[in-house]
Simulated scan of single mutants.
Amino acid sequence: MGEISIKINIADRVYPLRVSTEEEEVIRHAAKLINEKIKEMQENYAVRDKQDLLSMCVLQYATGMIKAERSAQTQDMGLEQSVHELESILTDFFKK
């Protein structure tokens, strides 16, 4: 699985990239989501400057990513606590 050259269009600008074949679909999908979000923001807000729209888009996606990471960490901590409780119960059970 080697690298390929692709061109991605984001906010009416073309970016040539070299990506692994495994990443191509994800990158194309990400570019599509970004362009859809920019279009949505253009329709809903009085902002027309592409740089401002890109900044707003990045802020929204970064905020979502941070929330998802925090949620995953919280779930991991809860799972870890449950495992320790189960381990303690099993240890007590087998001591009897």
Results as ranks from 00 to 15, higher is better:
Lys96Leu: 09
Leu90Tyr: 10
Gly2Glu: 12
Leu79Ser: 13
Val58Pro: 01
Lys50Gln: 12
Gln73Val: 08
Arg13Phe: 03
Gly2Asp: 15
Ser82Leu: 07
Gln73Ile: 13
Glu3Val: 07
Gln51Asn: 13
Thr74Cys: 03
Val14Ala: 00
Glu24Thr: 06
Glu36Arg: 03
Arg18Ile: 09
Val26Pro: 01
Arg18Tyr: 06
Gly2Gln: 14
Val58Gly: 05
Thr21Phe: 06
Lys95Thr: 14
Met65Lys: 12
Ile6Leu: 05
Leu17Ile: 01
Leu17Thr: 00
Ala72Asp: 00
Gly78Val: 08
Glu23Ala: 06
Ile38Pro: 03
Glu40Leu: 13
Ile10Thr: 08
Ile6Ser: 02
Gly64Phe: 08
Glu80Leu: 09
His84Tyr: 12
Tyr45Asp: 10
Cys57Phe: 00
Asn44Pro: 04
Lys39Trp: 11
Asp92Pro: 02
His84Phe: 10
Ala68Trp: 10
Val83Glu: 02
Ile34Phe: 02
Gly2Lys: 08
Val47Tyr: 07
Arg13Gln: 13
Val14Pro: 01
Ala30His: 02
Leu59Glu: 04
Glu87Ala: 05
Thr21His: 08
Ala68Phe: 13
Gln51Glu: 15
Arg48Val: 13
Ile8Trp: 06
Pro16Cys: 01
Ala72Met: 07
Arg13Cys: 09
Lys96Met: 11
Glu40Pro: 01
Lys96Thr: 09
Val58Lys: 01
Leu59Asn: 03
Val26Trp: 06
Ser88Thr: 11
Ile89Cys: 02
Glu43His: 15
Ile34Trp: 02
Ala68Arg: 14
Ile27Tyr: 06
His84Ser: 11
Phe94Val: 10
Ile38Tyr: 04
Met77Tyr: 00
Asn9Leu: 11
